[in-house]
Design a protein around this nucleic acid. Structure first.
Lengths: 220, 220
DNA sequence: CGCGCTTTTGACCAAAATCAAGCACTGTGG
DNA sequence: CCACAGTGCTTGATTTTGGTCAAAAGCGCG
């Protein structure tokens, strides 16, 4: 949204805020009057089951809207938490809805954004329903790096990577232990190298192969 | 869409067609110029992996649009197949887009529809990522019957149910064999009774309990 | 140095997949 | 009216993938 029409949105922007890592930015059950776009840093969107199980619905990267759903579905059905320190652009929900009604270009843009999000959700359903652990992990890495590349946030094959293995596990429907084993395989295969908060893809072709040769279409 | 503003859409409707069971209605990779809404019968939306694995992304019931994505994402990334004989209302993609631009109420409506679909996709991700086989099957049954009830297509607890166990399996990321065993448990528990093309919920509370007491919010 | 947090590793377990056989229903043709 | 073909369902034996539990090892940081 921000990148789609910077000028218009800058005009609507109310403020820019900074939030530390590991904070809940938006909480499920609320009916927020503010909307946020992620300007800098990483977040994730998740739901909790009553028994404590957590499903991460998506990883949010700079340029993403934090809670698109808040525009139309209330109360909000998921929470959003920061992974790193993040900077957010704050918008007023009513301002955005008004702009949506008055600007003839907005409906298409908004619908296109929703359609893209739905397509991404379909991708995730496919992954969780049909893919093995290695395929899921390999694809997650490919998806994230592809997206960063498209947004010009990736110089070489080396990324800042703030996800803990527990996040990967909760995003992919696996356990942290099994993610550890799976990542070890990717490392032994020479496909990736991981540092504390960094990831390097050393053999992209191999990674694509391990992802089942199913490259998610770019969509962006 | 159809039910949301019948009059407007009836005006846009180009024709009504009937398609037999087990036909592919829309094929992934195409860029359809027609859009369909499901007037009668059941369909499902799915993707195939190169190696033959199939993920059913959603089950479509009367009132659903067949391929919302076709409005904005091209080429289409999933296929749609009929489960029963279906009757479809046919719309011209350009007509709809024009209506969307000219009718001030349409953008909100369309965005709301997308948002709802995205929320449903999130539900599916949650289910595939965190739930056990019994929970998934129980929830699928609850979701479908709830939706039918909301649309006034369900008299008692007895539904026409055209899904084969293989469909359930491919929708839930299980195998048909395991779905068979899981359904047997539900039957032995006295929660449901299944006939050839019919399903009866005999103990809804028990079913909700088996679904992990996590009732998907209605969303409709 | 030592305290948290995260990752790794190992031994063991469980849920679901796989393989394979047999059964039941339905619809068709003799 | 019955044989039988096709499709889908059930069941059992076995294997696999990933989960669980628990301990130990790394690592960043005060």
């Amino acid at each position: 949204l921000v990148d789609a029409s910077p000028a218009k949105f800058t005009a609507l922007r109310r403020e820019v805020v900074t939030v530390p890592a590991r904070r809940i930015v938006v909480r499920a059950g609320e009916t927020p009057t503010k909307l946020y776009s992620l300007y800098n840093g990483w977040c994730f969107r998740f739901v909790l089951l009553p028994d404590g199980r957590r499903q991460i619905l998506s990883i949010l990267l700079p340029g993403d809207l934090l809670a698109t759903q808040a525009m139309y579905v209330n109360p909000l059905r998921y929470s959003v938490q920061s992974l790193t320190e993040v900077t957010l652009c704050v918008f007023d929900r009513e301002d955005l809805l008004t702009a949506l009604r008055n600007d003839p270009q907005m409906p298409d843009r908004m619908s296109a954004r929703f359609a893209r999000e739905a397509a991404e959700a379909d991708e995730r359903v496919l992954g969780l329903g049909q893919l093995t652990a290695i395929e899921r992990v390999a694809r997650l890495i490919l998806r994230l790096t592809n997206k960063l590349k498209l947004r010009g946030l990736l110089r070489d094959e080396n990324v800042e990577f703030p996800l803990r293995q527990e996040h990967i596990a909760d995003a992919l429907g696996l356990t942290a232990v099994h993610v550890s084993r799976t990542l070890s395989m990717l490392k032994e295969d020479g496909a990736i190298v991981m540092g504390r908060n960094a990831l390097t893809i050393t053999d992209r072709d191999r990674l694509v192969e391990l992802a089942g040769n199913y490259q998610a279409a770019a969509l962006n």
